[in-house]
Design a protein around this nucleic acid. Structure first.
Length: 177
DNA sequence: CGACCGATTGACT
DNA sequence: GTCAATCGGTCGG
């Protein structure tokens, strides 16, 4: 799922406007995965991870940032794909306004999981959003050829480093740094 | 209850 | 390369 989400569009209708980003970087978080929030079972925080696939799991971290995931499995199975970076496609002026001073230039607009959440105004309220709806959703796109996809270790985790569950579009200027 | 720390970022040396 | 910001989750006592 993480691999196949690359190239698809993340769309959000927000305050009368449309925000669109092309997914260029993802990470998978699975069951029996010590890096996953779901590793120790369902809690109030990770509840959404265990819902039916197609929901948005948003978590708060480092006391100031939000990150967004696409829930990928069936009811009761806690797996999700973290969206780590998108290429801004539409609503760029709106995204720039929202990003904090200093980070408000296009090159670093959405090239990180918390940055894209800020650009798309994804916070606590958006946790649990049904992506089969008209507020936040994904638009399909042809599966990218293997030649364009790179996999590597996930970023910022301690356990599970050996899993190559981070995926990104080769050569994309919008991947996190 | 207190201590520790995180699926991050931006500023700075 | 280092580090602070800032706070909720998790775990030990």
């Amino acid at each position: 799922m993480a691999r196949d989400l690359l190239g698809k569009l993340l769309v959000r209708h927000y305050r009368g406007g449309r925000l669109v980003g092309r997914i260029v970087e993802t990470e998978a978080y699975c069951e029996n995965d010590p890096a996953s929030h779901s590793y120790r079972g369902k809690t109030r925080r990770n509840d959404v991870m265990f819902r039916e696939g197609g929901h948005l799991y948003v978590y708060f971290t480092y006391g100031m940032h939000f990150c967004a995931n696409v829930v990928t499995r069936g009811e009761g199975i806690g797996e999700a794909v973290l969206i780590r970076a998108v290429e801004p496609v539409e609503g760029i002026e709106s995204m720039l306004q929202r990003r904090k001073p200093g980070g408000n230039n296009r090159a670093v607009l959405t090239n990180g999981p918390a940055k894209l959440c800020e650009a798309f105004a994804i916070e606590r309220k958006e946790n649990g959003t049904d992506l089969v709806g008209d507020e936040i959703y994904l638009l399909d796109s042809p599966r990218l050829p293997s030649l364009k996809v790179v996999s590597s270790a996930r970023i910022g985790i301690k356990n599970g480093k050996e899993k190559k569950w981070r995926f990104y579009i080769k050569g994309s200027a919008w991947v996190s740094r």
